[in-house]
Design a protein around this nucleic acid. Structure first.
Length: 501
RNA sequence: GCCGCGUUCGUCUAGCUGGCCCAGGACAUCAGGUUUUCAUCCUGAAGAUCAGGGGUUCGAAUCCCCUACGCGGUACCA
């Protein structure tokens, strides 16, 4: 049975890179009929941000990524929050010490800082490792009495890397990676505040929760050797590892960050987030008008592809096609245009009725109340030019209210002295079509234009200008049909009054 | 600095066991078509000497080595 997990730290809103990591875990689990769990790694209480956990849960709910076990759904390995598992870790840290795989260290942060400064002055780097641990203040150098005495105060537990070992890790994406332990430092496993660090808690929990595959970001690759050594020290079977490539910023290089979103104007978070202390708001995909299926599809393709030319895939298709072997090794730059294209595509796949329900809410917020049937009709008219659910209104406002202004460039180019006369003739024709029929109206107006040897574009564009306020939008006679001839007449009259030559 | 990972069109990538690749697809770009407009849509074009340099081979984007560059890590953070 395959069991994977997504283990975020509740230090703020969930980054879109984290969303992709979780998506891959989800696809992998579903494909193998395995389980996906959500574990909250909050061992650093100094970085805890209220609301972050709820935000994470809500984000996945929106995206349709479901968990089989986790903080919000429970499960046989509960609790799934590390701060609630505190008592568990101490025992394992003790076990490591008893086995000689770890030791107590009593050096204060100030002392360590001083060491680093000292090394820096000599253009070296201080590292707490097999070479330096012999001269530091720890249970390896102190006498038994001193240790007992020191243990009454603050201490940390450090991993004791064995000498001359080469650590091999087999990464499902990168293949064999080997690192010489001589170069690794003795990482702190257990902090003086009584909580474990990520490394210990992660390994212990993954083992206890029977995780079979650890699929996480590339930033963890450097510490993977520590983790496999930990499994070895505990004499546990290590899970398989897969380190995902990073999501890079669209311009230049480097990891995609919150700042890039603000700077380039696109969301880096699944949902909008307001920082509880600064009050600062970061935009989210949901609020920006993205559809969850588009976000999932787009994100899945950032660092993975099915090996075929297929690109548009539903969650079900992604599940059957996904494979870790086809995940690329290099970082992927975030491409806003492609995300936009996917969203446009998925909006077209929605039924008019679905979009109408959504749009009716937006209209209600603007105090425009009309029946759903009418809204659905409006959707049908503007749908194909909608890229985000948030721009349905921009594309269709003229269907619900007369334009306030008229694009000056179009006025300048199209509105001539004789325009009012012609528009008056057009409106007369429209009134003559009873009952009103858009096709008949269209044909009659066109016939009128041709008979009088008028310029087609001239008349049509001015009519459009009067109705829409601009030279864009869906078919004119569809618009007239929608708003009615009376309203059309009113808008033409208004335009004539407002547009003075 | 040290350690690790990476490097194919502007972007995401196909290419994994060398010849079917003078490198394929998608987004973006450009041109044309459809249309009363703007979009959509359709068709087409342009776009990578496969980071650079050495090998190996009859033959390399594909295998080996070196260099450069980028990224990640180097905390009692995750």
């Amino acid at each position: 049975m395959i069991r994977v997990r997504f283990a975020p730290s509740p230090t703020g809103p969930l980054h879109i890179g984290g969303v992709r990591t979780c998506l891959y875990n989800y696809l992998f689990a579903k494909q193998h009929n395995g389980k996906l769990l959500l574990r909250i790694e909050d061992t650093d209480q100094t970085r805890f941000v209220p609301g972050a956990e709820a935000y994470i849960v809500e984000s996945f709910k929106w995206l349709g990524i479901t968990f089989d076990e986790g903080v919000h759904v429970g499960g046989k390995h509960a609790p799934y929050k590390q701060s609630e598992r505190m008592p568990i870790y101490k025992k394992y840290a003790d076990e490591l010490i008893a086995k000689g795989w770890a030791y107590y260290a009593f050096d204060t942060p100030e002392e360590l800082e001083a060491k680093r400064k000292e090394a820096e002055a000599e253009k070296k780097t201080f590292q707490y490792d097999m070479n330096t641990r012999t001269v530091m203040c720890n249970s390896l150098t102190l006498s038994a009495e001193e240790i007992v005495e020191k243990l009454r105060g603050n201490y940390v537990v450090r991993f004791k890397y064995p000498e001359n070992t080469e650590v091999h890790i087999y990464d499902l994406i990168r293949g064999e990676v080997r690192i010489n332990a001589q170069l690794l430092d003795d990482k702190v496993l257990f902090k003086s505040d009584g909580l474990p660090t990520y490394h210990l808690a992660n390994v212990v929990d993954d083992h206890l929760m029977e995780i079979t595959h650890v699929i996480r970001g590339e930033e963890w690759l450097p510490s993977a050797p520590l983790h496999v050594m930990l499994y070895k020290a505990f004499e546990w079977q290590a899970p398989q590892f897969a380190h995902l490539p990073l999501l890079l910023k669209p311009d230049g290089n480097g990891k995609l960050s919150k700042r890039d979103g603000d700077r380039l104007g696109f969301p880096v978070f699944p949902m909008q987030w307001q920082d509880p202390t600064s009050g600062e708001i970061s935009s989210g995909y949901r609020e920006s008008g993205y559809l969850p299926e588009a976000v999932n599809n787009f994100l899945a393709l950032l660092g993975w592809n099915p090996g075929t030319e297929e690109e548009v895939m539903s969650m079900e298709q992604l599940v059957t096609r996904f494979s870790l072997e086809k995940v690329s090794k290099s970082g992927a730059k975030f491409d806003l245009d492609k995300a936009k294209w996917f969203n446009h595509y998925y909006i077209q796949q929605k039924t008019d009725k679905d979009l109408a329900t959504l749009f009716a809410q937006q209209l209600a917020e603007k105090n425009i109340h009309t029946n759903l049937e009418k809204v659905e009709k409006a959707i049908a008219l503007v749908k194909e030019r909608v890229y985000f659910t948030t721009d349905i209104w921009n594309q269709s406002a003229f269907l619900f209210q007369a334009p306030e202004t008229y694009n000056p460039e179009v006025v300048k180019k199209r509105w001539k002295e004789d325009t009012p006369v012609h528009l008056q003739q057009v409106i007369n024709i429209l009134f003559s079509v009873t009952p009103f029929d858009k096709t008949v109206a269209h044909d009659t107006v066109v016939a009128f234009i041709q008979e009088n040897q008028l310029n087609m574009g001239q008349i049509m564009n001015c009519l459009r200008l009067a109705l829409v306020g601009d030279s864009k939008g869906p078919d004119l006679f569809e618009i007239i049909d929608f708003i009615g001839v009376e309203e059309t007449n009113g808008r033409i009259g208004m335009a004539m009054k407002r547009i003075a030559l």
